[in-house]
Design a binder for these strands. Sequence first.
DNA 1: AATATATCTAACCTATAGGTAAGTACCTTA
DNA 2: TAAGGTACTTACCTATAGGTTAGATATATT
Lengths: 110, 110
Amino acid sequence: MEETPKIIMQSDINCPVRKSLVLLGGKWTLLILFQINERTIRYGELKRCIPGISEKVLIHELNVLVANEFVAKKSYAEVPPRVEYRLTDKGLNTLPIVDQLAAFGLHNLF
Amino acid sequence: MEETPKIIMQSDINCPVRKSLVLLGGKWTLLILFQINERTIRYGELKRCIPGISEKVLIHELNVLVANEFVAKKSYAEVPPRVEYRLTDKGLNTLPIVDQLAAFGLHNLF
DNA sequence: AATATATCTAACCTATAGGTAAGTACCTTA
DNA sequence: TAAGGTACTTACCTATAGGTTAGATATATT
């Protein structure tokens, strides 16, 4: 068997890992994407699914995720208001990352 | 084909994703693990591989990673000093995460 | 008329992650 | 003798991510 050493590029600002971390590296970002996952979920449900996050941060993160097209938002003109969030295709593409975070946690952190 | 909806637990502090993020969620943490990867690497090399990181932060992150047993450190009693870092088994287990971050970046951020 | 619900908005505050810059110790090379 | 390489350490500073609290809105319910 031959040794086929992995070549690792310098991680300058064009490094894919680094670019991903710029968008996904927040304290709550990947957790929010994980919780939305493949469902359509209302703001209030989401909040209850992530104990400890503040409303301000959750709203802000959601706005950023919508602006970056990870999440799609649908508001209904109802009272009381109803707002639904779901992942875009790009957002769905982040799920393998959180799957690996989950697998790592399960296998190494208990 | 049956619908088999994924069940998603509430992400309290015991959530595996959340626990992983506590340890790996720093600005540089996963990038450092990615750069060490499967090689044995000296401090100075590592620094050159991550343009923009400060010495203080790199040293500090490395110390934390060693304390958390993601990274093993070997110092040689030489002058000038030589210190080598490599991933432990636990550290190697984080590579699938950075692989997914890399894949995501390549496919979605260019 | 008071309370509850749901989704935000806004003002304010702070802890800390991270940045900057200088210094240390020892040897090598020019 | 002076500059450079190597792996740090220390002190100081600051920007900002994130926390806290209160309020807005507009209906329905009691």
